[in-house]
Amino acid sequence: MSDPGGIVWLASFPKSGNTWFRIFLANLAAGENGPADINNLDERGGIASSRHEFEASTLLDSGFISHDDIEDLRHAVYARAQAACEEQRWIKVHDAYTLTPRGKPMFGIPGTRAVYLVRDPRDVAVSFSHHLASTIDVAIALMNDDNGVWCAPRKGLANQLRQKLLGWSGHVASWLDQTDIPVTFLRYEDSMVDPARNFSDALAFAGRAASSDEIVRAIRHADFSELQRQENERGFGERNPRSKSFFRSGRVGSWREILTPEQVARIEEAHAPMMRRLGYPLSIEDVA
């Protein structure tokens, strides 16, 4: 595989297939030694909101800087990471694409690019509620909150830095509509139908060459049943300790059996324009 270097932001609203794609990448790197151990992924990209990485770079105590000041510094941290990045680094991001309080695009570092993963918000709501170990209504409320953030408790220290989510539509729009860095997007549903094509496109966009055999093998090693098998046997470190499992269903359209009509309406009313734009048919007619 050739490696053009630089950072690729692997961005998504939570529970939209980000981990699946990262496991695919790890399996691509593992080659015939796969399937990769989901608890020991050979991908060093990490997550952009890592508190530890921020402190290692800035030397500051992240508990004693305001969230806004942290955002301003994160831009500088990523600019340095990009400058130092000789091997391509895919970094997971759940933050929306925003300007920092001083007006810098937090992730808009020249030379970086973004692969944005998107999933039907009705399925996201179901999966998100499991991840949050909350009710579906709590998950929907966060998805519908244009000012939504997570990892920002006042009385304690979250394991990650605060991340602005901006609601589901706001999140998608923030990444797809920015013009600072090149961006492409993958629909989770398309990846489920034809992962080889979708993931090949993403790799090509990132300038990373891989043969179709390599891609097919990595997809097989990252198959949902394989991930579930590994989680059942040994657990998964990225699971929220309060939720039952991480690789829970992964199915497309499970919302039809789980969400109430009223919950569906709440999601569709809040996100109709973006859902139409991304090709997710609405179940209710003619919402405003």
């Binding site: 770079s57 800035t58 030397l59 500051l60 800087i65 305001s66 000041d69 301003d72 510094l73 500088a76 941290v77 600019a79 340095r80």
Partner: peptide, 18 residues
């Protein structure tokens, strides 16, 4: 050397926002 700090020998400069 860092986004908000520098070091030259035994001289260290650290900027803390706000």
């Amino acid at each position: 050397m860092g986004p908000n700090w520098d070091m030259v020998g035994e001289d260290f400069l650290l900027e803390v926002p706000s």
